[in-house]
Design a protein around this nucleic acid. Structure first.
Lengths: 242, 242
DNA sequence: CGTAACTTTGATTAGTATCAAAAATGGTGG
DNA sequence: CCACCATTTTTGATACTAATCAAAGTTACG
């Protein structure tokens, strides 16, 4: 397969966790798509849309969110390059939430029906995609616990740990040192706090020596203590599949 | 198909949202299983287990939960008769959370490999199961928002609304009147509050005339106001598929 | 009946939100 | 290249929601 194919990262990701033979990979690479370059903050899906396409991140970061009737935003997931942002929309008719880029990004829009037929024609691919959505769901469960039962400090430490590991798995970070692709307000919306409080807790984590930061770059200086602070265990990311 | 088959409710449920032909239904009904009767509070899976079977609720209610390092419990989902409790375990090696019955129940334990081979042999069934897990995930997203961004009153009203609709869809309730199969402490663990606070809010909702209750029976007397109180919209349950 | 589990109530405290504003940063056009 | 502007981060003061601690009622069940 062309190693410069825009799905390269996605296929590599899928293949790491799932048994895909060469023909499976070729078939994924052969999916039709439209490539688009979009700015930070661009919407990929809006709550209530009936979409025709599914967005895959070629480069850049994205998140999915919901808005309460009061207008409060809750970010429900973060997405890295190589990830499908709304694979679920391939099988569900109307979007139950919105998705938006966090940074400038390149997106591949893939028709739902192509994904569905591929999944039917190549069960191994179907199962791989299914498994991806199951890992997604596992992360949702962890987030329910994070916002439901952890205090502010643990919530923030937890999400910083998650991000570090996911970036590392994607080859985008090393030594727990990375650039956070979001504002403190977005971070707040991901952990169910106010941006003011997030700011204070970040400072506190830095004062305690668990992290170092300047602007949006984060260095988790003391991984062991940070894990403890965030009550973090990577089990829910299912690294056993990588 | 035998209308008294223990999977009857589950197949009917699946078939409502997915195009399954007679052969597909027969194939599901032909899945091998072990039927067990268990008491309330019995564990179906424990966090960290590598299970061989997947539990389907024939009768009774169940929930899935996680425990923080501090020992706090967060219930991440509720399950009704006819639902698969841990379908995700069919594709993920180790359980990332626990599952437990809420009431006395009858469970069908189905080998993972049987489910996987059925999904591969009959893509329509595979897609139906995948879709079920996607709806599951949609509910997780709503719960993230519920615990992350709604206040106590809205959280509790929301979950009572969700329960009412899901029970009704399963033919287990009418007129927003049902028996809540859990204690206030369990309810608290589902919405990320303390049982003391849940108790006060339930009383308040009753005083406001939104619900009536005695012991665990709930009557949502004013559905319209209750929806508002809970900022509830059934879209995330994907009723368009029923 | 007696006992354990659950529900209810009260008093106090703690953790976050809210409100307000200043300081820092990054991007843009002149 | 610099000045300006919008956005983001930071800090301070105060308010409020929900947690905590404690104990009394209630209910179901063996």
């Amino acid at each position: 397969m062309d190693p410069n194919h825009p799905f390269e990262a996605a296929i590599e990701r899928l293949g790491r966790r799932n048994p895909l033979d060469a023909a499976d990979r070729e078939a994924i690479a052969a999916l039709p798509y439209v490539r688009k370059r979009v700015a930070a903050g661009a919407h990929l899906v809006r709550d209530g849309d009936r979409t025709e396409n599914c967005a895959m991140l070629i480069t850049g970061f994205a998140h999915r969110y919901k808005i309460t009737g009061e207008g409060a935003r809750q970010i429900v997931s973060l997405h890295l390059p190589g990830e499908f942002v709304d694979l679920h929309n391939s099988l569900l008719e109307t979007a139950d939430h919105s998705a938006q880029t966090l940074t400038d990004a390149e997106i591949a829009f893939i028709p739902h029906h192509s994904i569905r037929s591929l999944a039917l024609a190549r069960p191994a691919v179907g199962q791989a995609l299914w498994r991806e959505t199951l890992i997604d769901a596992s992360i949702f469960r962890e987030w329910v616990m994070n916002v439901g039962r952890r205090d502010a400090r643990a919530r923030i430490a937890h999400i910083l740990c998650e991000f570090s590991l996911r970036l590392q798995a994607a080859g985008l970070a090393e030594n727990h040192c990375y650039e956070l692709p979001m504002t403190q307000e977005q971070l707040a919306d991901a952990v169910g706090l106010t941006s003011v409080h997030v700011n204070r807790v970040l400072r506190q984590l830095a004062e305690e020596g668990l992290i170092a930061r300047q602007r949006r770059s984060i260095v988790i200086g003391d991984w062991k203590r940070m894990r403890e602070a965030g009550d973090f265990s990577e089990r829910y990311l299912h690294p056993e599949l990588s």
